[in-house]
């Protein structure tokens, strides 16, 4: 039983990692119906930023964290301006391809600049474990869980209760109509990319002690976070968290109880089953015009 609970808890920690990355996918999708395949690579870049600030320049952890998040927000805006704005409104798949291209590009550029070794930084969460009875949870994982929950709550409130959040939802429904209603559509899209890149940077910084920083980390985690976002219903913020948790727990339990090999495909099997039953994901809204 203790094994089970320990696996469950580590699954939840893993799930929060996926949820945190999935949050970035969901934000951009929620505001602009664009799917950003480079989200994992933005996270990787955030990790490298923080390595540069903390590991190389020796800035204090929290200040370096802040710099990395701000730096990534600017980077996100720049990406939106250069890559996304010209093709906004064209078929979704071409934007998907463009962001896949961006991912390729960022991965190899990061590999060229920072090398291909695993990098690590000293963080306040690196050592230390939390013990509840016989249950053990490392501080770095705890920090991810806490951050994911806080970010989800903040962003959920932002989308549902602020003017800007409402404007973003309107933009995603129909850009032209939103523009006629006086919503500064370009600024909205730019802002959401900044927020999403900042969330990716948070993920990158918090994951740095767990996965270390290397140029392929984004690809690996991004491909797991993506099903999480889809499972939760792309476009639902709590859905990203729940989807991430489901994927994480399944992966963790499958790795423990099932023969080798199941760990990697179990999340995808569950995803396919869920998509068959509920094509719009668990929390997604889907309406179809009736003919």
């Amino acid at each position: 039983m203790l094994d089970f609970i320990q696996q469950l808890v580590s699954g939840i920690a893993l799930g929060c990692v996926y949820g945190l990355i999935a949050l970035g996918f969901v934000l951009i999708y929620k505001a602009t119906e664009v799917v950003n395949f480079a989200q994992g690579d933005l996270m990787m870049l955030g990790g490298f930023f923080v390595f540069t600030f903390i590991g190389l320049m020796g800035i204090d952890y929290w200040l370096g964290f802040l710099f990395a998040v701000c730096g990534m927000a600017v980077f996100g805006m720049a990406t939106e301006r250069v890559l996304v704005r010209p093709i906004l409104g064209y078929p979704q798949f071409s934007i998907v391809m463009a962001t896949i291209g961006l991912g390729y590009f960022l991965r190899s550029i990061a590999g060229m600049i920072w090398g291909t070794d695993d990098l690590r930084i000293e963080t306040p969460f690196s050592a230390g474990v939390l013990k509840i009875g016989d249950l053990v949870l490392a501080h770095d994982k705890l920090s991810v869980i806490v951050a994911t929950v806080i970010l989800c709550a903040v962003l959920y409130a932002f989308f549902n209760y602020t003017r800007m959040g409402t404007a973003m939802r309107a933009t995603s429904e129909n850009m032209l109509a939103a523009y006629y209603m006086g919503i500064p559509v370009k600024r909205v899209v730019s802002l959401i990319w900044a927020i999403s890149a900042a969330v990716a940077a948070c993920a990158g910084v918090l994951l740095a002690p767990i996965t270390f920083i290397h140029s392929n980390v984004g690809l690996v985690l991004g491909l797991k976070a993506f099903p999480a976002a889809v499972l939760g219903g792309f476009g639902s913020i709590p859905g990203a968290l729940v989807g991430g948790l489901i994927i994480g727990v399944i992966e963790s339990l499958a790795g423990f109880y099932l023969p080798q090999g199941w760990k990697d495909i179990a999340p995808y099997l569950v995803l396919l089953v869920v998509l068959l039953v509920r094509p719009q994901g668990l929390f997604g809204l889907s309406m179809r015009k009736k003919v």
Partner: peptide, 17 residues
């Protein structure tokens, strides 16, 4: 190392844009 990936990525983005 990895220059090929960067060029691949650039080619995709350029074509789509």
């Amino acid at each position: 190392a990895g220059l090929k990936g960067a060029i691949y990525g650039l080619i995709i983005m350029m074509f789509i844009l």
